[in-house]
Write a protein that binds this DNA or RNA. Structure first.
Length: 734
DNA sequence: AGCACGCCGACT
DNA sequence: GTCGGCGTGCTC
């Protein structure tokens, strides 16, 4: 959608298009109130029985009976959304094929904007049984069984149980579930205290300003006013200047003293024009406090934050730093499927700002962009974080296969024993939570799966339960086979970190062994504390999942053993190799610099000749593992269809790929050089009881991908119950 | 997010 | 026929 200029204004009574943050994928028309409106203004508008937040997006679109238009309810006391931000949201929505309203929601979710999340009490199970039991009601009760009677928001409960809101409402009306305000007493589901109720900004009466230009406030001068700031000074985020976060020795953020002249040249230009900066950090994985502060600060200066910081209303943005740009948590995986790194690049280009993508292990696409000359590559001076390059070796399991039921091979065992003797720390990395990924009956071969998902249940020995890693459902470990009834033959197959720890305890009974796995901590804080203790030398052998790579520094670590690194490389996930490479580098990378020890890494795998492993082993420069591994694959958007819980709908979802109209859709893509594969059942064809299929497209880099996909979505007969989501650049192909 | 509508199967 | 239960679509 074209944007009018910021100065565009609308007379009282004129139809204006207002974009709300509601799930309607276009702006709705309203009448400008007395006093008129400027484009970009934050307004409150009536929608059905409610009043919702919106942004004036342009002149009325028409197409809706003009006499039915309702009036804009009020003008919010906020600076209007700038043209750059509107344009950013529109282009981001366009690029990711996300409804524009969803993008607006991201930009307005910060506290201090938008409606207060109604402090509605949470629903808990009461003692009453429903008068009539139905399939849907049983699912709700089961959800309580699986997750505990913790209290859920209505929508949350509906989602967990896989039912519509109507079911929840019905049960509530019968007194089977009851609302009780207990938000604050929940032990760890919610880490934030209840929020104050009144957060809706006061609505001021419309101003008498007929068609004048919108309020162009004078900003108070920035607090640290320097004519020509050096990049590391006012431009870098406050948290960093405060030194709130200790930086690992291999830090990759621009450090003032060490930046190359070239870097200064490139960065100073934009900063001189617009001396404000934003730094994106990896997502901490829990709700961000302080976004309201971020909003206020962003208008005047700099801010650092996770993905959500992308949508803060900076003015005069000069530089965006994306720290650890390769990190997977920059990819938002539900709702709007965007990659924060790419959106940072987009935003910077709209704002005329510079971007620094910082990483010791760049993502493939970043590497390619640098190779292609689209990005300038800046290598930090070698001595900066220059660890002695760690020694790496592959263990060929064809020769060194451990005994059945064991996963620590001879050479790895010897290496760990050596480290133990030297008083150094070892890490055994295995990306599988729990004790064993598979529980089978030795009598009949039956495997225990989740009832709601087509996934196998994972044994968690500490919890003494089987857990579904897709939906979280749990059940006790059965003694007798649920299929054939034979007792005592249920067997745990395959390794998880818990089982690996068991093996390690048997081998090294005197060593201090610690497991680092996200499900073994009660809260994010507890987890952090635990990691700190372990990293500080509290364990001799650390057994961990990918959690260990999340930016933690293990100064005593000198050995990393990757258990079954090859498993991830042979699955359907084409990025697995890249991820493994990055992970190992992150964990054992230049961080050893401080201790000046040589870190060695051992790959335990069956076939060390696979190119990725070769690349990792021969890595002599920071990113060479990414070099020359395979030709650029072009772009591979993934399309997923959720068919709902009914099998016939799932089947209809699957027919997205067949039929006459679908064939026309396929031709439409092929005409633009885009191939469509599938549909195939998703690797886990059912999650939470919902069936899913997936299609994979392959497009050359030059193809007009978004337009083609949009046309395809229009041409293909998508049944109403089927939801299709498109991920333009998926991180994994699931 | 909340409500109205209309479909469907169970019961009168 | 009717009614309760449920998913779906609409909201300017």
């Amino acid at each position: 959608m074209e944007h009018p200029t910021q100065d565009e204004a609308f007379a009282p009574g004129a139809p204006v298009a207002v974009l709300t943050a509601e799930p309607i994928d276009r702006p709705l028309d309203y009448r400008a109130p007395a006093g008129g409106l400027a484009v970009g203004a934050f307004v409150s508008v009536p929608l059905g029985p409610r009043k919702v937040l919106g942004v004036v997006w342009g002149p009325g679109q028409g197409g809706y009976a003009e006499e039915k238009l309702r009036d804009v309810a009020g003008l919010l006391d906020l600076p209007p959304m700038r043209t750059e931000m509107r344009s950013f949201l529109a282009r981001a929505a366009d690029y990711t094929l996300t409804p524009l309203t969803l993008m607006l929601r991201l930009a307005t979710r910060a506290p201090g904007l938008g409606e207060p999340p109604a402090a509605r009490p949470l629903l808990r199970l009461a003692d009453a049984a429903p008068a009539r039991m139905t399939e849907a009601r049983a699912r709700v009760l089961k959800a309580f069984e699986a997750y505990g009677n913790l209290g859920f928001a209505p929508a949350e409960l509906a989602q967990l149980a896989g039912v519509s809101g109507a079911v929840i409402k019905g049960l509530e009306a019968q007194g089977v579930i009851r609302a009780r305000s207990s938000r604050a007493t929940l032990p760890f589901r919610r880490s934030t205290p209840p929020r104050p109720a009144a957060r809706f900004p006061p609505i001021r009466p419309p101003r008498r300003r007929p068609c004048a230009s919108p309020s162009r406030r004078r900003l108070s001068p920035p607090r640290c006013s320097r004519a020509s700031p050096a990049p590391a000074r006012p431009s870098l985020p406050r948290s960093r200047r405060r030194g709130a976060r200790p930086r690992p020795p291999g830090a990759r953020a621009p450090a003032r003293d060490r930046l190359s002249v070239e870097f200064l040249d490139r960065v100073e230009g934009p900063l001189r024009r617009a001396p404000r900066g934003m730094a994106l950090r990896r997502d901490p994985g829990r709700p961000q406090a302080g976004l309201a502060r971020g909003r206020r600060r962003a208008r005047r200066g700099s801010w650092s934050g996770a993905r959500s910081a992308l949508f803060l209303p900076f003015r005069q943005l000069g530089l965006i730093v994306v720290d650890e740009e390769h990190d997977g948590s920059y990819k938002q995986e539900d709702g709007a499927l965007y990659h924060a790194r790419d959106m940072a690049v987009l935003r910077a280009s709209i704002e005329g700002a510079g971007v620094v993508l910082a990483s010791a292990t760049p993502a493939l696409e970043t590497w390619a962009n640098a190779e292609a000359g689209k990005y300038a590559r800046l290598d930090l001076p070698e001595r900066f974080g220059a660890a002695v390059l760690p020694h790496m070796a592959a263990i060929d399991l064809r020769a060194e296969e451990p005994q059945r039921g064991r996963w620590i091979s001879e050479p790895l065992e010897r290496a760990v024993t050596e480290r133990l003797a030297a008083g150094e720390q070892s890490l055994l990395f295995l990306n599988r939570r729990g004790y064993a990924p598979l529980t089978v009956c030795r009598a009949c071969g039956h495997q225990i799966g989740c009832e709601n998902c087509d996934a196998r249940m994972v044994e968690h020995r500490f919890r003494q339960r089987l857990v579904c890693h897709q939906c979280g459902a749990t059940k006790p470990i059965p003694l007798a086979c649920p299929s054939c009834g034979v007792e005592g033959r249920m067997t745990a197959l395959g390794p998880g970190v818990e089982r690996l720890a068991e093996e390690a305890e048997a081998i090294w009974p005197d060593a201090r062994i610690a497991i680092l796995s996200s499900d073994l901590a009660r809260s994010a804080q507890a987890l952090k504390a635990r990691i700190d203790v372990i990293a500080g030398g509290g364990a001799d052998i650390v057994i961990g999942t990918q959690l260990v790579s999340k930016g933690h520094n293990f100064p005593h670590l000198t050995l990393v053993g990757v258990i079954d690194a090859d498993l991830g490389l042979q699955g359907g996930d084409l990025r697995a190799a890249e991820k493994t490479f990055q992970l190992v580098r992150q964990v054992a990378g230049p961080r050893g610099a401080r201790s000046r020890r040589r870190a060695s890494r051992l790959f335990k795998r069956t076939n060390p000749t696979i190119p990725c492993i070769q690349a990792i082993l021969s890595a002599t420069t920071r990113a060479s593992g990414a070099r020359g591994r395979r030709p650029r694959p072009g772009r591979r958007p993934s399309l997923r269809a959720h068919g709902g819980r009914h099998r016939h709908r799932a089947r209809r979802a699957a027919h997205l790929g067949g039929g006459a109209r679908a064939r026309r859709g396929r031709d439409l893509l092929r005409a633009r050089d885009i191939d469509l594969y599938g549909p195939a059942p998703a690797p886990i064809a059912r999650i939470r009881g919902r069936h899913r299929v997936r299609l994979l497209a392959r497009a050359p880099r030059s193809a007009p991908l978004q337009g083609a996909l949009r046309a395809w979505l229009k041409a293909v007969p998508v049944p109403s119950a089927v939801r299709v989501t498109v991920d333009v650049d998926p991180q994994s192909f699931f």
